[in-house]
Design a protein around this nucleic acid. Structure first.
Length: 145
DNA sequence: ATCTTTTGACCTTCA
DNA sequence: GTGAAGGTCAAAAGA
């Protein structure tokens, strides 16, 4: 594999997942695309498809098809969707109903900032990460004094 | 039929 | 108050 597959073949995914863009465990719906100044690449805007999910995601790609920058806005208020969960008939108890990733939902400062539309703050900045348990909270800028 | 993606226009914010 | 850049919404098409 030299370096192709940039915009072709989309029906040959041996993996059960990776249906949407950058599979990170959540479902995103693209709601816009704009070209920002200073960058030759267009920026894509995604929003969580869950109800009551004020989570937004900004994704910028490079010509190589690699993620140049991913900016997450806000936090998931609900757990991850049940993807590879096959429940045969006769299921009742749920011993593992909590988040499958262990993502914590307690960021008053972040929510406050986002809610107040604070400037000089970009919520969370994350780079290409793997799915499963790669959820680190990296804060950029300054926090409340 | 449902859902997602795509594009244009409009709105918001900062200087 | 205007301009520019960025951000968001809506309608239509495709899968």
């Amino acid at each position: 594999m030299a370096s192709e597959n940039i915009e072709d073949d989309k029906k040959s995914l041996p993996l059960p997942s990776a249906d949407r863009t950058s599979y990170d465990g959540y479902n995103w719906r693209k709601y816009g695309q704009k070209q920002v100044k200073g960058s030759e690449y267009p920026r894509s805007y995604y929003k969580c498809t869950h109800p009551n999910c004020p989570v937004k995601k900004k994704v910028e790609r490079s010509l190589d098809g690699q993620i140049a920058e991913i900016v997450y806005n806000g936090e998931q208020n609900h757990s991850k969707p049940q993807l590879p969960k096959r429940n045969a008939s006769g299921r009742q108890g749920q011993g593992f109903v909590s988040d499958g990733t262990g993502l914590e939902i307690n960021n008053p400062s972040l929510v406050n900032q986002v809610n107040d539309r604070n400037k000089g703050f970009e919520g969370r900045v994350e780079y290409q990460n793997e799915v499963g348990v790669g959820v680190q909270t990296t804060f950029s800028g300054q926090n409340v004094p």
